[in-house]
Each structure stands twice: as C-alpha cells, then as structure tokens.
C-alpha cells in the first residue's frame, strides 16, 4: 500500500530528526582528523618511503656490490647504476647510484631483489620538490638528502 502525501511528509520529518540525533552523538566524539603540518601521524615501521642505500657499520662503506639486480627488476626504470672495475681487480664497484623519485612507484621490488640487503625503504614520505631534476637523487654520496 502506498503511503499518502501527508504520511510521507510525516515519515520524512521523523527520519530526518532521527538522523540528526544520530549525527549529534558524533558531534561530541573526538575528531579523527589531524592538523597535518603541526601534528604528524605515526608512520608504520614497514612503510615504504623513498629508498636509500645501507652503510655497513664495520667498514663505514656502502654495502652495495654493484650487481645491478635492482636496476634490472625496477618496473618503472627509476634506478640507474654506474659501475667501474678498478685496475688490477676483477670485482665491479659502485660508482654512481641514482634513483628518480619522479618515476619510483615504491613497490619494494628492488629491496626484495638485493642479494646483500644493501638497499632499504626509509620512512621519508615528504619528497615534493619545486624543480623536477631535484627528484633525481644520488644515493651513494653521504650528506645528500636521503642518505
């Protein structure tokens, strides 16, 4: 049976009042939003922020062995490695390590593929830049932003 016009108006007023009462209970709850630049959320330990190279605490040098696994697996072509082989040695050494944060999709495949655990995700998530070129980071230099 269809309700008449006035019945509908009655039901409408009733439901609106009910909804208002419900929202009023939320009015007195603690706010769930944060005032972002002043208050920061706790970031999870596993959070995948911008990547950085690990330093071996014993030698003080980078752990990277320049195998270029991360460069090969990166689906977004964000990592570029330059290697060199010093005279008299057969082992390749890391010369330059670049990551383009403008390309990086923060998937974590480079971290998984590293055989010596030399690369990791930091918790840095504020990486906005004014100039695009600044997004290309050189990771094998101590004192740069993300090292």
């Amino acid at each position: 049976m269809k309700a008449s016009y006035f019945e509908k108006v009655g039901i409408g007023i009733k439901t609106v009042v009910k909804g208002m009462a419900k929202s009023l209970t939320y009015f007195f709850k603690k706010p769930v939003t944060l005032q972002y630049p002043h208050v920061r959320k706790k970031i999870a330990e596993r959070y995948r922020g911008s990547i950085r190279l690990k330093i071996d605490p014993e030698t003080g040098k980078f752990k990277c062995i320049a195998c270029t696994n991360c460069e090969k697996i990166c689906p977004a072509f964000a990592i570029t490695l330059k290697t060199e082989t010093p005279e008299g040695s057969k082992k390749k050494e890391l010369k330059e390590f670049y990551v383009d944060l403008g390309r990086c999709i923060y998937c974590g495949l480079c971290v998984d593929s590293c055989p010596v655990d030399a690369i990791e995700h930091s918790n840095v998530y504020e990486v906005a830049e004014r100039i695009k070129d600044n997004l290309i980071l050189r990771l094998d230099k101590i004192g740069e932003k993300n090292v």
Partner: peptide
C-alpha cells in the same frame, strides 16, 4: 592504517 602496518603501503600494497 592496518594495511600500512602490515604491507607498508595504504593502497598499492604489493
């Protein structure tokens, strides 16, 4: 937030 805790990302979890 729970996803971030376990997987490391909110949406593109991988």
């Amino acid at each position: 937030d729970m996803f971030e805790e376990v997987t490391g990302q909110r949406m593109t979890n991988n």
